[in-house]
């Protein structure tokens, strides 16, 4: 009875570990994008996306540019919102 219980616990731990590993692997690219936002575009193209942050070269330029430079972010954001409204309206 005790062996059966410990076997079940082992399977449960194995499943949790497996699911955690798969879940983390799936989420890795999102972390890579986030880290990438603190690097310059040409550096990303040259060295590729990776998971580590090089603090000596990291900066907030991309974020500042997103909300200030010619207001592109707000243009596409409003376009996306308009499209979303059309899609939500469509079934009605």
């Amino acid at each position: 009875m005790k062996t059966k219980k410990s076997g079940k616990l082992a399977v449960k731990i194995l499943m949790i570990v497996l699911m955690a590993v798969i879940g983390l692997m799936i989420l890795l690219p999102f972390w890579a994008i986030f880290v990438g936002t603190f690097q310059e575009g040409n550096m990303l193209v040259r060295y590729g996306l990776n998971l580590s942050i090089n603090l000596s070269e990291a900066n907030l330029d991309n974020w500042v540019m997103l909300f200030t430079d010619s207001g592109d972010y707000f243009t596409w954001f409003s376009t996306v919102c308009s499209l979303l409204c059309c899609r939500l309206w469509e079934p009605c």
């Binding site: 890795l28 690219p29 890579a32 994008i33 990438g36 990303l44 193209v45 040259r46 060295y47 590729g48 996306l49 990776n50 998971l51």
Partner: peptide, 20 residues
């Protein structure tokens, strides 16, 4: 977006994610 991320992850340099 996904295609661009994967292109950068599968880059040629040894610093790209898949090569790491």
């Amino acid at each position: 977006v996904a295609g661009t991320i994967f292109r950068l992850m599968f880059g040629e340099m040894d610093t790209a994610l898949m090569n790491q």
